[in-house]
């Protein structure tokens, strides 16, 4: 069901106006049948999925039947180990009729699942030129992020911590730098394990969060999805409200004019 009115604090990506800043994934569920209820509870409008060779021995209903029609599909290029492979997957995804958004995920490190920023930037450049809305998944590296800006990415998606680790914002300082320096939406993807961590990412100024494992592997995925939806909204609202004075920085002088650093100005104009 599409919203008729513009959302209050919209996130505009690839020409589309999004009202929810929580993106969800469809992997690792005990059953794909959970996905519709999870999607509903989370309020998410963007959902990721992967592409694989059709399995002839297992022709059961495909994932698309479980994804609400209103949602924007964000296929990822998981499985790609090089830019060329990622480009191929993106083109296949578009041919499969899901629109032209793509999450670039180029990983050739099976143990840590860390993304290859260089290959990702190459793929971004090619796909952006072909009209894709490119959301690249990378480490929170400022130079990689800058090259993604030049390459035409629609956003930058730094990992909070390695995929599936649920360790939250291990890269918090680096993500903060990206948020301050990169003129694109910064979407924290991977490693968010608890709603509080998603909330924190949004408080810091992230544009959105992508959460998969934490919801799919929760004891009650639907309830967890609802919690994440609220956490992302709360964090965003806090960010916009503008945190007030947090701490005193340095000591306050006992009385004006007696300052150690500027006391010499006493009596000056």
């Amino acid at each position: 069901m599409t919203e008729n009115k513009t959302p209050a604090d919209p996130l505009v990506l690839g020409g589309q106006t999004l009202g929810s800043r929580l993106f969800i994934g469809t992997g690792k569920y005990s059953s794909d049948a959970l996905i519709p209820a999870v999607a509903e509870a989370s309020g998410a409008e963007v959902v990721t999925l992967a592409l694989r060779r059709l399995d002839r021995s297992n022709p059961r209903g495909d994932i698309l039947t479980h994804i609400p029609a209103r949602m924007r599909l964000l296929p990822n290029t998981s499985g790609a180990r090089t830019a060329a492979e990622a480009v191929r997957v993106a083109r296949l995804a578009r041919a499969a009729g899901c629109g032209d958004w793509v999450k670039i995920e180029v990983i050739s490190d099976a143990r840590n699942l860390l993304p290859d920023g260089y290959e990702t930037a190459k793929a971004t450049e090619i796909l952006a030129r072909e009209g894709f809305t490119v959301l690249p998944y990378v480490n929170a590296d400022l130079y990689v992020a800058r090259s993604l800006v030049s390459a035409g990415a629609a956003a930058v998606m730094p990992l909070g911590s390695p995929i599936g680790s649920n360790r939250g914002l291990a890269a918090k300082e680096m993500i903060a730098i990206l948020i301050a320096e990169i003129p694109l939406p910064v979407i924290v993807d991977a490693g968010i394990g608890r709603p509080s961590q998603a909330c924190e990412a949004m408080e810091m100024g992230a544009a959105a969060c992508l959460v998969n494992t934490a919801i799919a592997t929760a004891v009650d995925p639907v309830a967890m999805a609802r919690a994440f939806g609220r956490a992302v909204a709360a964090g965003r609202e806090a960010c916009l409200a503008g945190p007030g004075r947090v701490l005193e920085r340095g000591a306050a002088p006992s009385s004006p004019g007696e300052g150690a650093l500027t006391g010499f100005l006493q009596g000056e104009s």
């Binding site: 920085r249 340095g250 000591a251 002088p253 004006p256 300052g259 650093l261 500027t262 006391g263």
Partner: peptide, 13 residues
Amino acid sequence: EPFLEETALRARE
């Protein structure tokens, strides 16, 4: 202007 010393403290830091 009344916060010159505090500003200077942060500047030094």
